[in-house]
Design a protein around this nucleic acid. Structure first.
Ligand code: FES
Ligand code: FES
Lengths: 147, 147
DNA sequence: TCATTTCCGACTAGATTCGTCGGGATTCAA
DNA sequence: TTGAATCCCGACGAATCTAGTCGGAAATGA
């Protein structure tokens, strides 16, 4: 039941970009340094986030990454889904992912409801937390590290 | 964000034992067959659940496993913790597990609250679902397979 | 005694995670 | 026009985790 470092670091990076939103592109190097993540690893993650349309990039000198949308329009759930796939405790809940909607139970699956509850409750938290929520909290705490 | 097969099968097995609660020890073989889980693998899981005090076992012929407590006193959260460890999206939330309460952030960690919310919401579901909840649902649906 | 059943530890193949590495393409600025 | 900054891409690799298997010992009831 863990979130992988892809998800963890990805959220950190997006949070960093949210703090710096509106200041033009921020180089990967700066994000990596502030968020204590390896540059080369973060590059992978931001690449995926770019292909998913959550960040935009500018190449060349003075280039970097920035959020593709305002912080209040990007949720943590979106970030996690890009970096880790569907948010679901069990593949069988995710009808889009091939393995049919049911496990091998003879009749209806009694346990399905349990796992669905778990999924819903995870998604509720992650989809209702936006980068703006995190940004404003950082400002309130006085730990906004942007510039 | 997945539950492993240990957790999944473990809950299935405990659910099966709940359906058969009060009928004396149920052999592993019967549980494995009904729940479509490999016998040798399930043996590992039930061993851990026994050592954790959630099931009791009777050795020898006519032996088997049974719940150590009535179904309403065992939660899915307990089962998952035995088989997968603490329910937490990030190790840093779990103060008992060595790696200190904080990630490497300079000041307070703004993101911690997010992950804590996620953890709370997962635990709320898993700790509030008892085996009795699952058992009564199975009976209501008419899919109780015990005997 | 013998079939049944739990108990235990060791072992393994495969998948996944968590990165690293090398080099190419693009852009700005001097 | 050159060079530094920066993103882009794919391949590679070590370590860890997952999902089991296997062989045999011990206990128990018939
Ligand atoms: S349908 Fe998913 S566990 Fe049964
Ligand atoms: S304290 Fe856990 S992510 Fe910062």
């Amino acid at each position: 039941m863990r979130v992988s470092t892809r998800g963890e670091y990805g959220v950190r990076a997006m949070f960093d970009l949210a703090l710096n939103y509106g200041n033009g592109p921020i180089p990967l190097k700066a994000v990596a340094k502030r968020q204590l993540v390896s540059e080369t690893y973060l590059e992978q993650l931001l690449g995926a986030l770019r292909r998913a349309g959550l960040v935009s990039s500018t190449r060349g000198a003075q280039g970097g990454y920035e959020l593709a949308h305002p912080p209040e329009r990007i949720t943590v759930g979106q970030i996690i889904r890009v970096l880790e796939g569907p948010i679901t405790p069990l593949d069988c809940l995710d009808t889009d992912s091939g393995s049919g909607p049911y496990c091998g139970q003879p009749d209806q699956c009694v346990l399905r409801g349990l796992w669905k509850n778990l999924q819903d409750s995870m998604e509720r938290v992650l989809d209702n937390t936006t980068l703006e929520d995190l940004r404003s909290k950082a400002i309130r705490l006085g730990v906004a590290q942007g510039q």
